[in-house]
Nucleic acid binder design. Structure first.
Lengths: 179, 179
DNA sequence: GGTAGTATATACAATATAGAATATTATAGG
DNA sequence: CCTATAATATTCTATATTGTATATACTACC
């Protein structure tokens, strides 16, 4: 659902076509969103139907596929604020597929479980290190908006929580607490 | 994707029909999974097509809608282990819609942002308290498998991380660091 | 200068999701 | 005992998601 918010939010700056949206999203939000490019075109069509955006031009460079340029409408501005407030207010509950695996884990041999948990711990440590390096690098770039720090921290605190929990789980499993 | 694992995992115990699966999932996994009942029937059909489960009977009580009982096959057992290992090994990256809202937050008035953040902090504190109470209550129940503790803790550590991060964000916003 | 790979740009089809619709039976409250 | 509500059990439809297909243009390297 946040694709719509992203599209409207970016179109508030200036008119864009689908591919441009895809590029901006990948470059500026790629680290903390998962928006498939197919969803962008779907959402654009939907938003156009609803009168939240409108095609203002169709351009073509050489014999490249032509592109449709969209502009946000007044209705779109309203929808943007509506979606923003909704996301901003609604508490989101996260679910972890890993918990499902954990629930059935007695189906796997003890040694395999231990080995994989150790692998997860290592992977989380690496991810955390990578994130922190990336964050420092971004911190120095002047074009990165201040709010990016908060978004980085968000990932960081959850990665850390996940790491600690996994280490804890590893110890419990090693002690044979889940036979 | 974890619906398939859940279905196969539960069918390993004994043959079940769709509604029974729905009940077990709601009762035993409702707190930490989000599996819509529509997805259960879809997955059952799919798994049957693939030969992972098979209908072994169709029963009917009175004039109630009849129910189809499914049994796991050998192929299903293999698929179960395959899915379990995949979930168990694959690191899962979580994305937070809230980050998208945060990215566009300058579109909302400062006071509203502050008020809503305070609301979120309160909500997270309540959720945490509720979870801890629920966990204590479950801890005493004998039929709850030991692994349930780990799953509870998983939610708890992430809720705590989210709470701390939100409080931190609130302070930064209050200090006017994101104008 | 040929060619392998990447970038541009969207349409479309396959798959997945989630809730509404349906129809019967049990239950609880006045 | 009557009625509103919840429980039983699934099918079906509307909607959303995601990647594949398509076709041209650029670019880097041997």
């Amino acid at each position: 659902m946040s694709v719509r918010l992203v599209i409207l939010g970016l179109l508030r700056e200036r008119p864009l076509h689908g591919y441009e949206l895809k590029q901006i999203i990948e470059e500026h939000m790629g680290d903390w969103t998962a928006i498939a490019f197919g969803s962008i075109y779907y959402a654009l069509d939907k938003l156009a139907e609803e009168g939240c955006v409108e095609r203002i031009a169709t351009e073509q460079e050489g014999h490249r596929p032509s592109r449709h340029i969209y502009q946000i409408t007044e209705r779109g501005e309203e929808e943007f604020l509506h979606l923003l407030r909704e996301l901003w207010r609604t508490p989101e509950r996260q679910y972890y597929d890993f918990d499902v695996a954990l629930f059935f884990i007695t189906a796997l041999p003890h040694e395999e479980v231990l080995a994989t948990l150790r692998g997860r711990v290592a992977g989380l440590e690496a991810a955390l290190a990578h994130l922190e390096a990336h964050q420092n690098e971004q911190t120095e770039a002047p074009e990165v908006p201040p709010i990016a720090h908060a978004i980085f921290n968000h990932s960081r605190v959850h990665l850390r929580a996940e790491l600690m929990w996994t280490q804890d789980l590893l110890h419990h499993v090693a002690e044979g607490r889940y036979p």
